[in-house]
């Protein structure tokens, strides 16, 4: 969450990132395109805060309880950024036996593991010389608290 406060100042976000700024322009043509437009206020937009690479960010729905202690429960929505390179400690979406699996990536020396966050499940060690396909890095978990 510490990276959060760096996000809202970034360049336009979202496939139509400029749309976020559209609301602040006065209607009609007056004022549009003038330097003063930057000073106007616009409502906070979650896309701006949460999605750094709109072209590369996808949403996935979770199933299962193996990441429970990492705060990821069944039914949550994950934002998955394919533009980021996965590092040790990142929660990632990997492809295992043709299916998407959410785990924490662990690299220690030559050992690469996909770690669970639940006592009821087991880590997966990538065999030496084996290929691990990382689909994307999970940047955000969206959890709905009401129905």
């Amino acid at each position: 969450m510490s990276s959060f406060d760096t996000l809202p100042n970034m360049a336009p976000v979202g496939r139509d990132g400029a749309a976020a700024t559209a609301a602040k322009a006065p209607t009609g043509s007056a004022g549009f395109g003038s330097p003063g437009a930057d000073a106007t206020v616009h409502r906070l937009d979650l896309n701006e805060a949460l999605i750094r690479h709109p072209q590369a960010t996808f949403m996935m729905r979770t199933e299962g309880s193996a990441m429970r202690d990492a705060g990821i429960d069944a039914g949550d929505v994950l934002l998955v950024d394919r533009a980021l390179t996965a590092h040790h400690g990142n929660v990632v979406v990997a492809v295992v036996d043709g299916e998407f699996v959410c785990r924490r990536l662990c690299r220690q020396g030559d050992v690469v593991k996909l770690e669970v966050a639940s006592p009821d499940h087991a880590d997966m060690v990538v065999p030496a010389g084996g290929q691990l396909e990382i689909w994307g890095v999970v940047t955000t978990v969206i959890k709905s608290l009401v129905d």
Binding site: F58, M59, R61, T62, E63, V101, C102
Partner: peptide, 14 residues
Amino acid sequence: RFTTRWDEMPVVKA
């Protein structure tokens, strides 16, 4: 329709 429908998102095993 994985990227355009809320109820058709890809499922990931957690």
